[in-house]
Design a protein around this nucleic acid. Structure first.
Length: 858
RNA sequence: GCCGGAGUGGCGGAAUUGGUAUACGCGCACGACUCAAAAUCGUGUGUCGCAAGGCGUGAGGGUUCGAGUCCCUCCUCCGGCACCA
């Protein structure tokens, strides 16, 4: 018999599969489509360790399974090569990022090939390819040229908005905007081009703004909130662990907040783990509450209005002071030199604001103790009872949440309580008084205590609504999620296709001028000043091109669409391709992208949906997150611990099929587990035993009903398990089947071939080899998936479990389908049963057909 | 602090709607083959006990004929969010 030489066999079939293009997906197929996608990797340079392919192997088993089930499977792979990781690698090794990316992709691809993954390589995409990023830029321009209409709940072209401004001004517009100003058509027409641009910028879905950003001096760039983690000495960058501080900078933003509600409700219909959905829900952070207008009065002059946001408008009677965020526009104006005299303690307030500015983000969080200062000279009026209350500014009120102002109710809010205690502000029980202040609440009785839950005939929700309505407030929802910063001061990213002229007017590039290619530069090192390296390129600056580049998540937010039609030069994807492939059916990747890539992609997809460019509301219907593979020492695999297992070694020593079987068998797909150099031998033995068994496979051999029943039950189990991503139990049931076959003298070839087919997704090379050894000319990977025969699964005899008082005392084989009485007669005669029921009365019998009898005796 | 997930042999882990706890694999022990070893094959392997039998799924209680699975209280670990009004 031939030896099981995994090296030769695997190389041979990998080559054949590639040359015959057996994994090619067709855009013109009458078959049902199925799109199985892996999160494409950053080609990082250090190559793969055995943890990386765990997800790829899982999705590959699944894709092969769906293919054999007769579907037109799209299973592509590509590279996310822009962004920090690739650039960091290039800097460390002192080569051009493009060169580094090319090299790393080569390594990656070789490693992926060795594992026998069934990708359609003709559809490979690379985000750094100008043919790809042309369309990333194109989508950006679409976003830039859009605003969000809340009435239609959709993104719409900015031209529509301009037309409305020209016709009737801004008053009737219901848009997502950070602009509260209103103007007439005449006022709009009178504006300068620059003013018009600034005004529109407040509506655009991609906009330029100035804000405190997370600045990493070491990386020389700005980072998004989800790229930062807490370090021992304050926040640090997720990649590299470099310190991060606050800095005010010019930035491009994407108005993801416009989609907050759709991103939240869309989660309900997705087949994702509850865990990931919960992370996204938390991140979006919806709070239902109300905006309550408070009148602000001065010693002299006209009163103003400041709305506060609260989730507890029902506690309005317990408000004893108001707090504004130190960055509140009102405060900024009040300390302004033009407004001397408004505040009695202007210098004190100014000093306090200055002291906060000096504090870094980490100091403000670490200190935790709340600080603040009263704005002397102004008072707020509680609209419920006309009471005058003091106005403070304090660091515990955030400028960019709610309205940046709160009513403080120390009796019901812990933070307000703490602050009130510290500054000796009044604390009062939240009682709605007998006279109900100014309100006409439909409440009977003496007045009541909110916090004790006594609402006197009014539910807490009704109470909130009534009070809000009666004081002229409005019910609103607020979100924790912030707009996403869409700019990096780095070289290695997609250029933002905009031009600035001397007067500050911004012009988007025309579609025909895309892609705006990244220029060659002498130094792509970060400048460290916050300026992008592109600012040092004179030809670039002469044309006034934007110097920021896009962040790493730009390309990854839509790459899965490009796979549908990767070579199209006329459109980002052809309409017919979108119509056929629709969206990703099965998406596999790490859970660490929950608040980054997975959220941004949903956002872009919804935007594209608004323009009819895609036809589904969600990009990824089902999501599976593979667990990590830890080092044998139970620590995360890293150079630092020296615990990295290289898949190349495993493939060389044991074979790709063994690697695949082991990684699927080692535990549940979503679990993080340590690699075990001992356990992998079990998977290899499994394959060795199959190989040896082929000697006893014969066309002439006869099958038995009992074996057929085991075989077909295994087919059923493996089919269901793959569908549920329960690969470990699928493998285990095939091991059980093998144990059965080994007990037989000869195995019927047609039976064995059914086994080969269900094993094929796990061990495609070896099963293909055996298939051809049997004389088949076809590819096993293209054979049809077997169907479990109901008839053959049926058994004539069943095992009955016999319990006495709930404890298992005996078991016996009995013909199927017997009635309770017949079974009772039979089992009572069994010695193991008899000794337990002797001289006792059977009080009760629990009978489960074909399965179990429980006798309750005394 | 809040939210989410999980605790089962020496180890990785199985266990439809409550119905044989520890499938499958690793490891270990003994045996066969061998001059010997490796490989391979066979048998055994939760725990106490000579046995009959008892006890066993993080801890304690409950529901039930019967609980790893359901309910209550608590402990531990992992992940996410964190001055969001």
């Amino acid at each position: 018999m031939k030896e099981y030489n995994h090296l030769d066999i695997e190389k041979k079939w990998q080559k054949k599969w590639v040359t015959k293009k057996v994994y090619k997906a067709s855009n013109k197929s009458k078959k049902k489509k199925y799109y199985v996608l892996d999160m494409f990797p950053y080609p990082s340079g250090t190559g793969l360790h055995v943890g990386h392919p765990k997800g790829y192997i899982g999705s590959d088993v699944f894709a092969r399974f769906k293919r054999m089930q007769g579907m037109n499977v799209l299973h592509p792979m590509g590279y996310d090569a822009f962004g920090l990781p690739a650039e960091q690698y290039a800097l460390e090794h002192n080569i051009h990022p493009r060169k580094a990316v090319e090299m790393n992709i080569k390594t990656f691809e070789k490693q992926l090939h060795n594992i026998g993954l069934s990708f359609d390589w003709d559809r490979k995409v690379n985000t750094t390819d100008p043919g790809f990023y042309k369309w990333t830029q194109w989508i950006f321009l679409k976003i830039y040229n859009s605003w969000y209409n809340k009435d239609t709940d959709k993104a719409e072209p900015i031209e529509n908005l301009i037309k409305i401004f020209e016709k009737e001004g801004s008053k009737k517009i219901n848009a997502v905007t950070d602009n509260r100003a209103s103007f007439s058509a005449e006022e709009w027409k009178a504006m300068s081009d620059k003013d018009k641009q600034d005004m529109l910028m407040r509506y655009r879905l991609a906009y330029e703004g100035y804000s405190d950003v997370n600045w990493s001096p070491k990386l020389g760039t700005v980072l998004a909130n989800d790229e930062i983690v807490d370090g021992p000495n304050g926040p640090v960058s997720e990649r590299g662990g470099f310190p991060v501080e606050k800095k005010k900078m010019r930035q491009w933003f994407l108005r993801i907040t416009a989609y907050a509600d759709r991103l939240l409700t869309g989660l309900n219909g997705l087949d994702w783990s509850e865990h990931i959905k919960e992370i996204q829900r938390n991140w979006i952070g919806k709070s239902d509450g109300a905006e309550i207008p408070f009148k602000i009065v001065f010693k002299e002059g006209k009163p103003g209005i400041i709305p506060v946001f609260t989730t507890r408008p029902d506690t309005l009677f317990g408000a004893t002071y108001m707090v504004l965020s130190p960055e509140h526009l009102w405060v900024t104006l009040a300390v302004d030199d033009d407004h001397i005299g408004v505040l009695d303690n202007r210098e004190e307030v100014k000093k306090y604001i200055e002291s906060l500015k000096k504090k870094t983000r980490e100091e403000r969080i670490e200190g935790k103790e709340k600080t603040g200062v009263e704005l002397r000279g102004i008072k707020a009026i509680n609209p419920a009872n006309n009471e005058e209350i003091p106005v403070w500014i304090a660091d515990y009120v955030l400028a960019d949440y709610g309205t940046g102002a709160i009513m403080a109710v120390p009796a019901s809010d812990e933070r307000d309580y703490e602050f009130a205690k510290k500054y000796k502000l009044p604390i009062r029980e939240v009682i709605i008084p007998k006279d109900r202040g100014n309100l006409e609440l439909p409440i009977t009785g003496e007045g009541f205590l909110i916090n004790s839950g006594k609402f006197n005939g009014l539910s807490s929700e009704e109470c909130k609504k009534s009070i809000t309505k009666e004081v002229g407030g409005k019910i609103v929802s607020k979100y924790k999620m912030r707009d996403a910063i869409f700019a990096r001061q780095r070289y290695w990213g997609e250029p933002i296709p905009l031009m600035h002229d001397k007067n500050g007017i911004i012009t988007p590039l025309k579609e025909k001028d895309l892609p705006l290619k990244l220029p060659e530069v002498k130094s792509y090192m970060p400048t460290g000043t916050g300026e992008s390296p592109l600012a040092g390129v004179s030809s670039w600056m002469k044309k006034g091109f934007e110097t920021n580049t896009m962040p790493g998540w730009a390309g990854s937010s839509w790459y899965f669409l490009r796979y549908m039609d990767p070579k199209n030069k006329k459109a980002f994807v052809d309409k017919s391709a979108i119509k056929y492939w629709k969206n990703v059916d099965m998406y596999v990747g790490g859970a660490e992208h929950a608040t980054g890539h997975l959220l941004y992609s949903r956002f872009w997809h919804k935007f594209l949906k608004d323009y009819g460019l895609v036809i589904t509301e969600e990009p990824f219907q089902t999501l599976k997150n593979q667990g990590m593979i830890l080092g044998p020492d139970n620590r995360k695999m890293s150079k630092r611990w020296g615990n990295i297992i290289n898949p190349d070694d495993v493939v060389k020593n044991y074979g790709a099929d063994t690697l695949r079987v082991y990684e699927t068998f080692m535990g549940p797909f979503e679990a993080s587990l340590p690699w075990s150099t001992d356990n992998i031998i079990g998977s290899r033995r499994f394959l060795d035993r199959i190989w040896r068994l082929t000697e006893r496979v014969s066309k002439k051999a006869k099958s038995t009903p009992i074996f057929e029943s085991v075989l077909h039950k295994t087919i059923k189990k493996v089919t269901e398990d793959i569908d549920n991503f329960a690969f470990n139990t699928a493998v285990s049931s095939m091991m059980i089947l093998l144990n059965e076959m080994e007990k037989m003298e000869y195995v019927k070839q047609s039976d064995f071939e059914l086994f080969l087919k269900i094993l094929n997704p796990f061990a495609p090379h070896m099963t293909e080899e055996i298939w051809s050894m049997f004389g088949h000319k076809s590819f096993l990977v293209l054979e049809a998936w077997p169907k479990a025969s109901k008839k053959k699964m049926e058994e004539l005899e069943v095992k009955f479990i016999i319990q006495i008082n709930g404890k298992v005392r005996a078991e016996t084989m009995l013909p199927k389908g017997l009635s309770e009485n017949v079974v009772l007669e039979k089992i009572k005669a069994l010695p193991d049963v008899e000794k337990w029921i002797m001289e006792k009365e059977i009080k009760k019998v629990i009978f489960i057909k074909d399965k179990l009898v429980n006798l309750v005796v005394f």
